[in-house]
Simulated assay, not measured.
Amino acid sequence: MNLKYEVIPEGRIELCKDLCNELMAFQKSKAYIKPELFDDMNFDTRMIPSIQSATRNYTVVVKDNDQPVAYVYANISPKETYSNDFATFFDPDSVKGKDVGCLSQFYIKEGYREYGIGSTLFNMSIQWMKQFNDVEEYFIFVSNGNHNALDFYKRKGFNVSHDILDGFITVLRNNKQSC
Rank of each mutant, 00 (worst) to 15 (best):
I140D: 02
L172T: 00
L103T: 07
I164W: 08
N84S: 14
E80C: 09
K34R: 14
N175K: 01
V95A: 05
S29R: 05
F139K: 08
P35H: 07
F158L: 15
D18R: 14
N144E: 05
V171L: 02
V60W: 02
E14H: 09
F26T: 01
Q105T: 00
K96A: 11
N159R: 10
S104T: 09
P78D: 14
I51C: 00
S83A: 13
F152V: 07
V171I: 09
E137N: 10
Y5M: 00
E136W: 03
D134I: 05
F141K: 03
K34D: 15
K156W: 10
C16G: 06
M47Y: 10
A31R: 00
L19I: 11
I169E: 00
F168K: 11
N75L: 11
V61D: 02
P49L: 09
Q127N: 15
I33Y: 04
L103S: 04
D64G: 04
N159A: 10
F106V: 01
K28N: 01
E80I: 13
M41I: 08
S119V: 09
L15F: 12
Y138M: 04
D64W: 03
G145W: 00
N42T: 05
A31F: 00
N65P: 09
Y115N: 13
F139A: 08
P78S: 11
Y58M: 13
E136F: 03
F168C: 12
S50Q: 14
E80K: 15
R113T: 10
M124C: 05
N21R: 03
K4E: 15
E36L: 07
P68A: 04
N123Q: 15
N159V: 09
F43Q: 10
T81C: 08
C179Y: 08
F158H: 03
V62E: 00
P78H: 12
Y71E: 00
Q67G: 01
E14T: 11
L23K: 06
C179N: 13
Y73T: 04
S83H: 15
S50F: 10
D91R: 04
R155D: 15
Q131T: 04
Y71C: 04
E36A: 10
R113M: 08
P92E: 07
I51N: 06
D93Y: 11
V72L: 12
S143V: 00
R56E: 15
